[in-house]
């Protein structure tokens, strides 16, 4: 009836096999969805460890972080910033996207807080570049994602989504969003200004 509890001295021998060339582990015999998914995750992790090129193939502790990737991301971001200032928004968006992919490509054992930090800055910047091209929908999503990654100390992203919603004439949503933003960034002058703007627009609509 009941499955007996697992004893620390025993385990269930699973029907596994390994490809001797690729070192990929797979299940033999009957297919089992959970097992297959788990093995896939295992193979992904194994490849990540191999490609990370760490000493002895042991993932290092989360801190200190290998500075190489961070430097590359910074370089990409600066190039994108330059493009943005020149008004070359398409190129800036492309470079920001590359930098975001690079930040998300960090090995899984590196600090997640660092990834969130980097990605939030990059997403906010990409939102700005989208706004430069008047692509309000993309900008709004990017800014929202940026806020999701970092809520406090990210007033620009809060403001950008609010602005995009106003531009798309979604005033109700924009108002709610700015209210929410002011809970985190109550003293931000831009947000207060945006709030006044939304109220003005709503009043003129009526």
């Amino acid at each position: 009836m009941a499955v007996p509890a697992q004893s620390p001295d025993t385990f269930t021998l699973l029907p596994l096999q390994m490809d001797s060339a690729t070192k990929a582990v797979s299940a033999t015999g009957t297919t089992n969805k959970a097992l297959d998914a788990e093995l896939q995750a295992l193979n992904t992790l194994h490849r990540a460890i191999l490609s990370a090129d760490v000493p002895a193939g042991t993932p290092p502790p989360p801190i200190p972080v290998n500075p190489k990737r961070g430097a590359q991301i910074t370089k990409l971001r600066e190039a994108a910033n330059t493009d943005f200032r020149k008004g070359n928004h398409t190129q800036a968006v492309r470079l920001y996207s590359l930098a975001i992919d690079m930040a998300l490509g960090r090995p899984f054992w590196e600090p997640a807080g660092l990834v969130r930090e980097e990605v939030s800055v990059l997403l906010a910047a990409r939102a700005q570049a989208h706004m430069g091209m008047q692509e309000w929908a993309e900008a709004a999503v990017d800014a929202e994602a940026s806020v999701e990654m970092r809520k406090v100390g990210n007033p620009k992203a809060w403001w950008r989504r609010g602005k995009c919603l106003v531009e798309m004439q979604r005033l109700e949503e924009a108002e709610a969003w700015v209210e929410h933003a002011l809970e985190f960034e109550g003293t931000e002058a831009d947000l207060l200004k945006l709030k006044a703007e939304i109220e003005g627009l709503k009043a003129s609509k009526k």
Partner: peptide, 28 residues
């Protein structure tokens, strides 16, 4: 499941599983 996979891999004889895979399995 993760424990079973790790121990199953550890007990695999032919061919022997390399340390890299075992380490990944241990992290899982």
């Amino acid at each position: 499941l993760q424990r079973d996979i790790y121990l199953s891999l550890l007990h695999m004889e032919n061919p022997k599983v390399p340390d890299g895979v075992l380490k990944a399995a241990l992290m899982r």
